[in-house]
């Protein structure tokens, strides 16, 4: 019992030492710092890309989307006019339009 206790005590005394050694070693602390930095940087990166995407998206919504819609409407209008012209039986005008 006593020996066991001593052994247990020894092992109990030895392990924290090793753990402490490992956890206090340069590499681990460096690694931990690096991981922390990486998380921070990736967070910042994600945040700034999100912000950039937001700005780009809203700007696109303001500047390009109305233009696309209007151009689409215009082409639709032209098509309708072309159809009407062909229905009314004025063959030269759509030809000229096509050219």
């Amino acid at each position: 019992m006593a020996a066991k206790r001593v052994g247990a005590g020894k092992s109990g005394g030895g392990e924290p030492n090793i753990l402490a050694k490992i956890s206090n070693s340069e590499i681990v602390s460096q690694g931990r710092r690096a991981a922390g930095d990486a998380v921070e940087v990736s967070k910042k990166l994600l945040w700034s890309t999100g912000k950039a995407a937001w700005i780009a998206g809203t700007t696109f919504l303001i500047l390009v989307v109305p233009l696309i819609i209007e151009m689409d409407r215009e082409s639709q209008l032209n098509e309708i006019e072309l159809q009407q012209a062909s229905l009314l039986g004025a063959p030269p005008s759509p030809m000229q339009r096509g050219l």
Partner: peptide, 19 residues
């Protein structure tokens, strides 16, 4: 951009203003 039914004007400047 002047279309038949509409006119669209857009601008972006270096102060970060899009209009």
């Amino acid at each position: 951009y002047i279309l038949r039914q509409a006119r669209v004007r857009g601008k972006i400047d270096s102060n970060g203003v899009a209009s």
